[in-house]
Computed example of a mutant assay.
Amino acid sequence: MRLLFIQGRSQEGRSEQELKEEWLGALNRGLSKVKKPKIAASEVAQPFYGDVLLKLSKADPANADELKRSSPEKGQDADFVKFMAEAVVELSANKSEAGNLAIHPPPTDPEYVLRTKKPAGEPLDSSDIDDMAERGVQNWSWVVATVRHLDETFPAFSEWSIGRLLRDVYLYLTEEKIRAEIDEIVEGRFTDEPTLVVSHSLGTVIAYNILRKKKRNITGFITLGSPLGIQAIRKRLEPPAVVRPDVSTWINIYDKADIVALNPLHSQSFAMFDEPIVDIAIQNGSDNRHNIKPYISDVEAVSHIHRIVSSGEHQ
């Protein structure tokens, strides 16, 4: 039984070996705590696309430095603004269990408030978002302010932010060159052997997109801190996210205080699947509640990984 780890974003400058040691080390620490045998490095593959994503995203017109648009005249700009607006409005409407804090950031663009005659702080609806997209960068300042508000409200370490995650997810979903190169790297590590896929953050979007397109010898699919519950992401999957990967077990582990993984996948996002996704809420102990190491070392994660690996060995 092989394990295939699929990383999230913000790993540029690192290496496949470094990531593999980090993920496997955390997993084995968790396995030791529940008195289960450790997994050998030879049983694990970890494709690395961090440097490729950084290089391609910098060359793309949707790249944002400190969340500022570099090419406002591009036709793609309106869709990017709409994607970001849809995502942050959805995220800001949720409640965090961290201090029972409800986030409702108001539109901060005075011209927008005046034009729509909406009181500051009143939630936006779909027509408001469509209006923002049509007006493009005129409303980018509002989106930037909302993303920054969320980043400040949900503590994050310097390498991670909601805005950058959403930017990279958008590029993967909408730019064929970026998606093709990343998919080629990840798909190159699949074999005919029975494989358990464990993915995190942006990696869950990449893994889902790859697994639903072709039948493979996959014994299980585990998503950690997945943003697939965000409607703005699901609706931009091509074809739309209505195809379940051909796996008997899909386990989604999330923290309700992880701002990009607030929504359980089965109950709200993929309830149409005949074989339901198993959603498991945990407490991720990191500062931003999104870090991979607390996710993959959690007792629920390691117990399911051990169960799937063991069942494959005994077949």
Rank of each mutant, 00 (worst) to 15 (best):
Q7Y: 06
Q7V: 04
G8A: 10
Q11K: 03
R14D: 00
R14H: 02
K20G: 02
A26Q: 10
K33Y: 10
K33H: 13
P47S: 08
V52Q: 13
L54P: 00
K58G: 06
D60F: 12
K68D: 07
P72H: 10
E73L: 14
K74A: 11
V81R: 01
K82N: 05
I103D: 09
P106K: 12
T116D: 04
L124N: 07
D125M: 06
I129R: 06
I129T: 09
W140Y: 04
V143M: 02
V143K: 00
F154E: 08
W160A: 05
L165Q: 12
L166S: 03
Y170M: 11
L171K: 11
Y172P: 09
G188H: 13
R189M: 09
R189E: 11
T191I: 04
V197Q: 02
V197W: 02
V198M: 05
V205E: 12
Y208Q: 07
Y208D: 07
G225K: 14
S226K: 14
P227G: 09
L228M: 15
K235W: 07
R236C: 04
P239R: 12
V242K: 15
D246C: 01
S248L: 01
T249V: 02
A257N: 15
A257T: 14
A261C: 11
H266Q: 07
Q268D: 12
Q268L: 11
Q268H: 12
M272F: 10
D279G: 03
D279M: 05
A281F: 06
K293I: 04
Y295N: 12
I296H: 09
D298Y: 13
V299E: 15
I308M: 07
V309H: 03
H314E: 10
